[in-house]
Design a protein around this nucleic acid. Sequence first.
DNA 1: CCGGTTTAGTTTGCCGGATGAATTTATCCC
DNA 2: GGGATAAATTCATCCGGCAAACTAAACCGG
Lengths: 402, 402
Amino acid sequence: MPTTEPRDPSRVARQAQMRDQNLGVALRGIVDAAEPVSRAQLAAAEGLARATVSGLVDHLIEARLVRELDPTPTQRAGRPAVPLAPARGTVAGVGMEVNVDYLGVRAIDLAGDVLAEHVELDDLRGADAAVVLDRLASLAEPVVDDLRAAGVRVAGTALALPGLVDRVTGPLRVAPNLGWRDVDVVGLVEAHPALAAFPPRVANEANLAARAEAHARRGSPSFAYVSGEVGIGGAIVLDGEIFPGRHGWSGEIGHVVVDAFRGPRASDGSLEALAGQDAMLRAAGLPPTSRLDALLDALEAGEPRATAAVAQAARALGVALASVANVVDVGEVVLGGSFGQLFGYVHDEVAARLDELVIFAPWSPLRVSPARAGQYPAMTGGALAVLATVLADPAEWLRTHA
Amino acid sequence: MPTTEPRDPSRVARQAQMRDQNLGVALRGIVDAAEPVSRAQLAAAEGLARATVSGLVDHLIEARLVRELDPTPTQRAGRPAVPLAPARGTVAGVGMEVNVDYLGVRAIDLAGDVLAEHVELDDLRGADAAVVLDRLASLAEPVVDDLRAAGVRVAGTALALPGLVDRVTGPLRVAPNLGWRDVDVVGLVEAHPALAAFPPRVANEANLAARAEAHARRGSPSFAYVSGEVGIGGAIVLDGEIFPGRHGWSGEIGHVVVDAFRGPRASDGSLEALAGQDAMLRAAGLPPTSRLDALLDALEAGEPRATAAVAQAARALGVALASVANVVDVGEVVLGGSFGQLFGYVHDEVAARLDELVIFAPWSPLRVSPARAGQYPAMTGGALAVLATVLADPAEWLRTHA
DNA sequence: CCGGTTTAGTTTGCCGGATGAATTTATCCC
DNA sequence: GGGATAAATTCATCCGGCAAACTAAACCGG
């Protein structure tokens, strides 16, 4: 599970906050651990006294955020440790997504297990926002209801969208590939009575997908994530944290210009214009209505136009990512979405461009790897984003919810 | 003064740390304030009890980090507040810089006043690193000695270099325009006996210049900074903090590629290749040995080749900055160094390209402004970086120094 | 089987430091 | 000179982390 939300760094230390803060430290220590840890290990890892940790853990267990496992038979002397693990099925984050050809919901608990999931495939280009969001809410309603009926506390919902979304207030500014502009997404979702109590945190699809990717990789990785859907989105991950930017609009790698002098408008040379799905299909001589599978088939068959199209796109992708790496100093590039599927065809070119263009490559070569977060990573990332609010300050969350 | 160094966010809260942390909060509250604040104001601003703040402030005064000013005659009833201000001339940060045509030292105290300064102009392209750094140390030696003789505690030194420098360990990886590569800068500076006790924090020139710029703008601004020296450097500033990246190599805007298909090598289309000082002079038909002044004269005279050269460079600059803005979501662009001097000639084109290419421009237009940090901002930024270590944890600093 | 050893977890008294209320100090105003 | 008002200090209280002592539950060697 990724770590905390950003917090005011110059915060004063108070007595009361101390407890709350350490409760969070303990919970994150348990949830982030690769293996179940004992109270004693946790104390050693965080530098707290064992007595202190015991008190915190008792609190977390009582709040059903943590559970004790059966002691594992060890061959060592001494009283066996009680392994601690995140509780299962007690708290859930709900991630929702509307994208160009599907929409869906996924609920995940603190242990990272998927508790429920619903996805519907459909072409939503140009669909009416109110209709689509009502349909999404209808999809989410039974999920939320079932969870609550089963005694699962729903910590909140998140909604991933393929566009520019304000970080806090959540209006969708523009989603070019859906044809949406200035949509009050939160309001439309809340309009559905079942979700009125759970206003979604809205965020960009690629940013949430990157969060899922960071979670899948454990241990606070840093990378630039590229999400090839119909458009090209992206995100920057630093030490396991999504880099949100000032308004939540960061990571728009698709709008990086790699060829400023290509057409009359400089945006004709943007990465999305050169390596977006439509551009690749066109360059490969495939009908614009076809899907990525058609391109993959053509590549498999060794079709020269398809090969050339993907090579050209890979060059643009590599150049754009090199610029990103030069500016934000990330050591790894993760290709997701369609670029994940095309990984074998684009890896070498992307790696070569990074090697050539990133100024620090001689001292810290960049890795290029495919996404591992599974299907619909933005739904997972949305659920994780919700759970991260619980992890950031469990005491506060327990006071307001629970 | 800019705020703290980044700190481990998931740190546990301890009793002992609480005092130290609040000491830092209080000190930063006083130093960052635009006007002198009283203990009571500080307590209200930070949400601490007045009693607590009093104790902290007493500690800071005793440590000569803060001083009390004379109460200003106010027209209100009640006991007049004692204004608190950063102490002057008690602690200094020393910023040093080696750049392509100058090298120098500047010492600054907590109040932001320049206590000492020495700059020597010289063309250092291709000069031997050991020789230059020894010369720099000789320049810094009397500055440090004089400060110490005057009872000023020297908090440390920083060294700005026009190249890629490792954040912590500080070897200079490469400085293309100096012709340096893999230089143990810290070791060479420390070799000078006067500086043996003050190993410099080494950092990129543009990153430190951006720190000075952030300081000059108060109030935690966010912007992308471009430093046009002989090469083109840059930095990202978010809420007043320099964004260092994983290794301290961030902000290399000069290596952003805006025209991937220009030459045989993709790097022929980098911003530095298109808008660096050499490129502009060449395009303007000026001899490569000439300086920026010659270009400014030609522009002033309406010389068409010069105008065209700068227009072309401005286009590349605007496109590169648009890519940066799309990726890191900054709302302002600050042009420093030669681009600061050329500001009047490049502003419109840069602003137009940002407006055209930055996807969020319709909702949050980007500002383009010239740098205000004065001459040799990297020296100032280096000194501020040193002082920031004091501000980050004054208690710790007092334990180890003082 | 039993005492010694080792490690995990709990109990307990202590202590640092934030806190709020009360107090003192310093000014303005009538 | 006597309120009124606000700043700063003093003081008793309380919270929570801490170290040490203690209990619990395993292993081991005889």
